[in-house]
Amino acid sequence: MKNIFLQISLLVILFFSVLGVLNQVDWLQLFRVEKITTSTEKKLGDLFWDLYHSSKDEIKNDSVHRIMDSLLTHICSSNQIDKKSIKLHIVKSAEVNAFALPNQHLVINTALIDSCKNESELCGVIGHEMAHMQHDHVMKKLIKEIGLSLLISITTGNAGAEKINEVIKLLTSSAYDRKLEKQADITAVDYLEKSTINPANFANFLARLGQKETTSSQYLSWINTHPDSKERAKYILEHCNKMAVKAKPVLADSSFSQLKKLLQ
C-alpha cells in the first residue's frame, strides 16, 4: 500500500514537473499569439472605423478635441493606461451613444456629450468604454458572436459588405453580456476614483437616462443597449460608497459648458 501511495505521489510530481518546465517557455511569443491577435484587431478596427466613418460626420474641431483629450489624458495617466493607443472620435449624431471598436477606437456621439450635466458623467461613460477596451471585451464579443474564421475572412477581404455592416451594427448598437457590462462599470468606477472624479455622478447619469428610457427612448441607444440602468446605478453607488473620494475638477470651470456650446 505504501508503495502505491509513493507511486501516485511520483506520478503527481512528474505531472507538475513537466508543467513547471513547460511554464518556463514564453509560448505566446513562440506561437506569435499576441502578434496575430494584434494585427487582426488592428485591421478590423481600422476597417470598421473607416466604414462607420464614411456614413457619419466626424467632429474635427480642435477646441473640442483639446477638451476631450484633457479628460481622456487625465483618466489614462491616473490609471497607467497608454493614451496614445486610444483613438478618440467624436461623431455628430442625435443618438445618445458611445462605443468601442477593435484596436482601441473610442467613438462618442455628440448627443451623449450633450446629455451629460458635468464632466464627471462624461468621464464615467469614457471610463466604461475604456474598461471594455482594457478587458478586451470588444474582440471577445466579436469572436463569440461572429466567429474567428469570419473575422479573419473580413480582414483578408473575403467577407461580403453585408456581413461587415452587420458586424458594425453589432458593435455600435448592442451591449455586451451582463457580466461584462458589470465588469466594465466596476472598472470604470475604479478608473474614476483613481482619477479623483466622483463616480456617483456616473451613477446619476445612468439613473437619469434610465428614467428617460421609459418615456422617449428612440435616441437613447447607450441606455437601451445597456439593460437595467437603475440596477447599474445602484451597484455603482454601492461600489463607490466603499471608498471615499475627494473629487477634484479635471477641466477649468467654463470648459465643459464651452464643449457643449461648440458641439451645438
Partner: peptide, 22 residues
C-alpha cells in the same frame, strides 16, 4: 477562454501541452 473574459496565456498553453503529453 471561449465564453468568458479569460485569455489565452502561457500557463494555459503549458497546461494543455502537459495534458497532451500525458
Amino acid at each position: 477562454i471561449i465564453f468568458t473574459t479569460e485569455k489565452i496565456s502561457n500557463h494555459y498553453i503549458a497546461y494543455m501541452l502537459t495534458a497532451f503529453v500525458f
